[in-house]
């Protein structure tokens, strides 16, 4: 269970990006966070695994308080939090297998990591997961030889290799074409069910949010102003979330071109 309470993030001395935010995610549900650019979605996600340092408040994952961890303790906690990125964030010059195994770096010895002597069970798990998402035959290919959708699949498998207790996805489909984008969203939903894994997804595309997730959280100016089932997201709620922002035009079920 992920429990965020009274979370504040302020960059420098300006207006806080996240304002006394509370959010609880239980069970293996797929939760999407929508909101216009600058609403604080990405900051929220990065506060959870501390890629961004929260200013105050508390975040607990299965009863571990994350906000005060340092050094090795923080790294141990991060192992339990998988993350998928908008730009895939793969190491282009490494093979798909190495990219996938880099999700295990927190677990294996430095020697094994340097020599690429991965434990047998890790390799087996990697092949199973890659088989599941359809990229097993690329194991020896370099990551930059793959297409966008395939690269994001590598990103997903890398995160799952961590055996995470929660999966964070930061705009996982924003760099993909509409068809691939739907495939990745479907994959995330199915994997969540199969692996009994809660998934938290930042997303611009409201149509995909409604289609593929169990619960939608709407953010505006650092606050949560909507939190309900997808069916409850009506035009009025949409207007409150997106009013007066250019993202409103894009939010009406249209896919993004980027």
């Amino acid at each position: 269970m992920l429990k965020i309470s009274d979370l504040v993030k302020r960059y420098g001395g300006g207006e806080p990006v996240l304002k006394n935010l509370d959010l609880t995610i239980e069970g293996e549900s797929v939760v999407s966070i929508i909101g216009s650019s600058g609403a604080g979605k990405s900051t929220l996600l990065r506060c959870i695994n501390r890629l961004v340092e929260p200013t105050s408040g508390s975040i607990t994952l299965n009863d571990t308080e994350l906000t005060r961890l340092r050094g090795a303790e923080l790294r141990r906690a991060r192992r339990k939090i998988g993350m998928v990125f908008q730009g895939f964030n793969l190491v282009d010059r490494l093979t798909v297998m190495e990219n996938v195994q880099s999700g295990r770096l927190g677990y294996i010895s430095t020697w094994a990591a340097l020599m690429r002597r991965y434990p047998k069970e890790d390799i087996r798990r990697a092949f199973e997961l890659m088989e599941r998402v359809g990229i097993a035959h690329y194991a020896d290919k370099r990551a930059d030889e793959l297409s966008g959708g395939e690269r994001q699949r590598v990103g997903v498998v890398r995160a799952l290799m961590q055996k995470p207790e929660i999966l964070l996805a930061d705009e996982p489909t924003a760099s993909l074409d509409p068809k691939t984008s739907e495939q990745i969203m479907g994959l995330l939903r199915d994997l969540s069910r199969e692996l009994k894994l809660p998934v938290l997804i930042n997303i611009h595309n409201v149509h995909e949010a409604k289609e593929y997730t169990d619960r939608i959280v709407g953010m505006r100016y650092g606050r949560i102003i909507f939190d309900d089932l997808p069916a409850a997201l009506d035009q009025e709620a949409m207007d409150r979330i997106y009013s007066g922002s250019p993202a409103a035009d894009r939010a009406g079920g249209l896919k993004e071109a980027s």
Partner: peptide, 28 residues
């Protein structure tokens, strides 16, 4: 064993002759 200094340029095809449960992988 391949040393860490082996450049990552070695791209190859799929490991075709692999067994059903694949638990072996070496960098090309």
């Amino acid at each position: 064993i391949d040393g860490p200094d082996v450049p990552a340029g070695a791209a190859g095809g799929a490991t075709s002759g692999a067994v059903a449960t694949r638990d072996h992988w070496r960098k090309k």
